[in-house]
């Protein structure tokens, strides 16, 4: 998950890197005003949001007087950026600089190592520079391949990267003024899986659930099978409403939570459960419980895997039909649709 710029900069400053002097403002007060005067002018005002493209969306302003600063801060506090309400405004001294460089650390999937990307053409989209003028971008796993002047900074960044369990650390730009390097912006992505040892961030669980545009709810256990179910539905002309992975080893409660989430926007829900570590009997219990209190929701159930015979029997006893493979599941859906609109039932790719 992403981290706000002001938090990232505090961490980098603590580790000895130069960041502009700043105050973080969540509401404008007398204290804010004293802070602004202490910083002096001109100032940079930056909306603290996590979405990209903040500059273009008007989330960064400049102020040359106290009056401008007050107006700017109040304006930014009230302004949502691409639908995101800012956590506050970061007010910084303006650092005059001659050059803008780029540096980032990321985890490279192919190399299975930490990759440094450095360029003296910073301040812009690095992917564009990399495509247009690849000779201007250094990509390496070794600090010693970087220019000498940036090596101490890179070393500090690597320490931070490891200590804070980051998956991306990007400084764009580094402002260079008379050979001194300033962190002018900072992007941190923290590993969601390491939050148990990184108590300074809060956990989100966005990865299990993604809302899509359609109307057929989809729940499954395992990301792969849910993605494949969505693909199959799309190929057959259905419009999936969401991606919901209840994960391996899901309990009755977790399934209920999933069903309750999905039924808030969809009256038809497809459950594709192939249990390895998941006990399908637990899932079946969740389905029955849900179905009793939500009889209006049409469920299409496929259950296979651990305890499947008991699970299917339990479902049947409670008047819920289910299939044992994905093809039959899809055929049932097509039957249901043709019953609704009277079209021919043909099982083939669109």
């Amino acid at each position: 998950m992403k981290v706000q710029e002001y938090v990232a900069k505090r961490i980098l400053s603590k580790h000895g890197l130069r960041v502009p002097k700043s105050i973080f403002v969540t509401s404008y007060s007398e204290e804010t005003e004293e802070g602004l005067l202490r910083l002096g002018f001109p100032l940079v005002l930056k909306s603290q949001v996590l979405v990209g493209g903040r500059m273009k969306a008007g989330g960064v302003l400049f102020a040359h007087t106290l009056e401008e600063a007050r107006e700017g801060v109040e304006h930014l506090l009230a302004k949502s950026i691409k639908g995101e309400i800012p956590e506050g405004v970061l007010v910084e001294e303006l650092i005059e600089h001659d050059e803008e460089w780029y540096i980032s650390l990321s985890v490279d999937r192919t190399l299975r190592d930490i990759l440094f990307i450095f360029s003296k053409s910073g301040g812009v989209d690095i992917e564009e520079v990399s495509t247009r003028e690849p000779e201007k971008v250094i990509k390496t796993t070794e600090i010693t391949d970087l220019p000498k002047i940036v090596q101490p900074t890179a070393k500090t960044l690597l320490e931070v990267f490891l200590e804070y369990d980051l998956t991306l650390l990007e400084i764009n730009p580094i402002g260079v003024s008379n050979g001194v390097l300033y962190v002018l912006d900072a992007v941190f992505h923290v590993d969601d899986n390491a939050l148990f040892r990184q108590s300074w961030v809060k956990k989100s669980n966005e990865e299990h659930f993604v809302r899509l545009d359609g109307d057929v709810g989809v729940i499954g256990c395992g990301a792969g099978i849910v993605m494949a179910t969505i693909d199959v539905l799309k190929e057959l002309g259905f419009e999936p409403a969401n991606f919901y992975d209840i994960g391996g080893g899901a309990s009755r409660e977790e399934l209920l939570k999933a069903l309750n989430t999905v039924c808030s926007f969809s009256n038809v829900v497809v459950l594709n459960i192939f249990g390895g570590i998941t006990d399908t009997l637990e899932v079946a219990k969740g389905i029955v419980e849900f179905s009793k209190s939500n009889p209006q929701i049409r469920l299409f159930v496929r259950l296979s895997g651990t305890h499947e015979d008991e699970a299917r029997e339990y479902l049947l006893e409670n008047g819920i039909s289910c299939t044992s493979d994905m093809k039959h599941l899809v055929e049932e859906l097509l039957n249901w649709r043709s019953g609704k609109v009277g079209e021919n039932r043909v099982l083939q790719t669109r």
Partner: peptide, 17 residues
């Protein structure tokens, strides 16, 4: 391959997906 219809930039369950 799974994920033909996955929206771009969204993580589909697996951290790698």
């Amino acid at each position: 391959f799974a994920g033909r219809h996955a929206p771009e930039g969204k993580r589909m369950g697996h951290a790698g997906a």
